[in-house]
Design a protein around this nucleic acid. Structure first.
Lengths: 176, 176
DNA sequence: ACCTGAACACCGTTCAAGT
DNA sequence: ACCTGAACACCGTTCAAGT
């Protein structure tokens, strides 16, 4: 569990793992393929990393940071943030799946990584924690269904995003 | 690909598969465990079903129907439908994951299964296809994040659902 | 017609052994 | 200190063989 002093070899392994997920998809990341990518056999990997879960957690960390930057670049404009979120996910489907569809290894993430990624969204909906959570979940749901190919053929996904942003741009009513 | 005449043994296998997913989770459904549950070895299963994907597709079909009924029972009231959706998912986490987090084997589903499940939702948002799609995705996202344990500890998930319903109960504005 | 054991090509991981 | 091959307990699936 020691994060170690960035042993060089360890970084190589994580870089190779990220590239495997990006180019071949999440299922292509096996200990044997990862070993081959860095020029060793699978058992040798365990001298540099604890287990496969640690590799996955490291990729989650990287992906959260990358996505956080993409969102921050669109800060303030809800529609632009929606587009940025969707664009990042479609550009990095493997990493998105890793980050959004697996249990977060929260104890392995650096402090604040999660909050940093969410901050621009919270600001954009006026600081309402619950509204921002609902919007975040909705964005996740739209992307998730798209990546899982769950929309009926011919569905107008752009229009669904517009409908979402429209719903959340209206002033927060409490008509309960 | 012939659906066959409900050979009895085939139903037994699907029933056992459903129970395995419900009680032990999705990873506990292996061809070997499934064989054991119906009293045969894994290879013998292939005399009754084509492959594991066919079993999963059959469970998706059953789950979609069950969830559709749950939603129909709350038809008309958006807040009640949200509660029904969430309640169904939390009561059947294994089946929910199967149905909502895996690519739909659409070609294996009975005609109309998907549309039937979605119909009450479309009606509840006044027939707007895009709004209903956004709301459906949002509900999925909220449940998905909850099941994946992705909310920060202590998050008020009820309040997030309320925020979602509030946003979609406001009249559809087009302030673009 | 139905079920079997043996086998194949995979997994993640452990461990004794080599350098 | 680092890497190896062999092995273990798993996967889904195929297939020849038994009844």
């Amino acid at each position: 569990v020691t994060t170690a002093v960035a042993s060089g070899r360890r970084q190589e392994i994580l870089d190779a793992a990220e590239q495997l997920v990006e180019t071949e998809g999440i299922d292509a990341l096996t200990m044997r393929s990862l070993g081959a990518a860095v020029g060793m056999r699978a058992p040798s990997l365990y001298k540099h990393i604890h287990d496969k879960d640690e590799v996955l957690a490291a990729l989650q960390q990287r992906a959260l940071e990358s996505m956080g930057h993409a969102l921050a670049g669109a800060a303030g404009d809800l529609r632009a943030m929606g587009r940025a979120y969707r664009a990042w996910a479609l550009a990095h489907p493997g990493l998105y799946e890793l980050t959004a569809r697996r249990p977060l290894a929260r104890h392995r993430l650096s402090e604040g990584t999660e909050a940093d990624a969410a901050a621009p969204l919270v600001a954009a909906v006026g600081g309402d924690e619950h509204r921002s959570r609902a919007l975040w979940a909705a964005a996740h749901g739209l992307v998730d269904l798209e990546l899982a190919d769950r929309y009926p053929p011919g569905a107008d996904i752009d229009a669904a995003w517009d409908a979402l942003v429209d719903a959340f741009e209206a002033p927060p009513t409490r008509n309960r």
